[in-house]
């Protein structure tokens, strides 16, 4: 028996909007720790890892570890039917091939049940070791989204370079080139508006921009985003989900031939 009640149902709506275009089908894993997902895109270039900790749910019942295969496009369709202020409850019986999403309006005057078929998915989990990163950049998520969008109108790839000067995002295309440098800036009114750069070693890596633009669909989940960079490692783009966990995207770099 599984029963997860999330008062801030809009979080789950936003999570699905953030991942549904990157991954078609995925297993959601439910354990005492929380509700989690790890899935790669079809080309095995990008990976999404989601964790919503059990403590973040108003009610969390998970009698045994369970993995539920879902089509994320279909799940997103169902969650779109929930209001932004609705409480969302996920329910599944042991051995069942369906999951039920229950949506309750804040005043309890409307209650809806949506039942979705589960599917068998061969999960390909990767072990992601803890790593010391050469550089960690924290910046406003809206700023990062703006940079990715702007650069993708010029080129297909972005070079991210972190030096003592700051973090530089560069691209080139048929019409020309673009460089955007963000310097550390901690003298702001609100902490979430700061750009903070922790650098152990300078690092420069090249990535396909279209994946970054997909990751920025998670922007509504967090005011800030963290980029963790090391040479020869996938970048980690992390959006923290307040009081619940995180959504992390890993993207393999382009490799010089």
């Amino acid at each position: 028996m599984l029963e997860l009640r999330l008062v801030q149902g809009s979080l789950l709506k936003k999570v699905l909007e953030a991942v549904k275009d990157l991954v078609n089908d995925a297993n959601f894993d439910c354990s005492a720790t929380g509700f989690s997902l790890q899935a790669m895109d079809s080309s095995h270039v990008a990976l999404v890892a989601l964790l919503l900790r059990s403590e973040g749910f108003e009610h969390y019942r998970c009698d045994r570890n369970i993995s539920m295969g879902m089509n994320l496009g279909n799940m997103a369709k169902m969650l779109k039917c929930a209001g932004n202020d609705d409480i969302i409850t996920l329910k599944a019986d042991d051995g069942s091939d369906v999951v039920t999403f229950m949506f309750e309006s804040p005043t309890q005057d409307k209650i809806a049940d949506f039942e979705m078929k589960l599917m068998d998915i061969d999960s390909e989990h990767l072990g992601i070791p803890e790593a010391e990163y050469h550089a960690i950049v924290r910046m406003p998520s809206s700023e990062f989204a703006r940079i990715c969008k702007d650069l993708s109108s010029i080129g297909d790839t972005v070079v991210i370079s972190v030096t003592k000067e700051g973090v530089k995002f560069s691209t080139r295309g048929d019409i020309g080139t673009a460089n955007i440098v963000c310097r550390q800036n901690t003298t702001v009114d609100k902490p979430e508006e700061a750009t903070v750069i922790e650098m152990n070693e300078p690092v420069s890596l090249t990535f396909a921009l279209r994946y970054f633009n997909s990751f920025t669909k998670a922007t509504p989940l967090s005011n800030t985003v963290t980029l963790s960079l090391s040479s020869e490692l996938p970048v980690v783009v992390e959006y923290k989900i307040a009081e619940m966990g995180y959504i992390r995207f890993y993207l393999a770099p382009k490799i010089e031939d």
Binding site: S43, H44, V45, A46, L126, G127, A252, I255
Partner: peptide
């Protein structure tokens, strides 16, 4: 010239 890396080149199956 560069080519797109794949995640399996960096992470092992769990």
């Amino acid at each position: 010239k560069s080519s797109q890396g794949r995640l399996e080149s960096f992470f092992k199956p769990a």
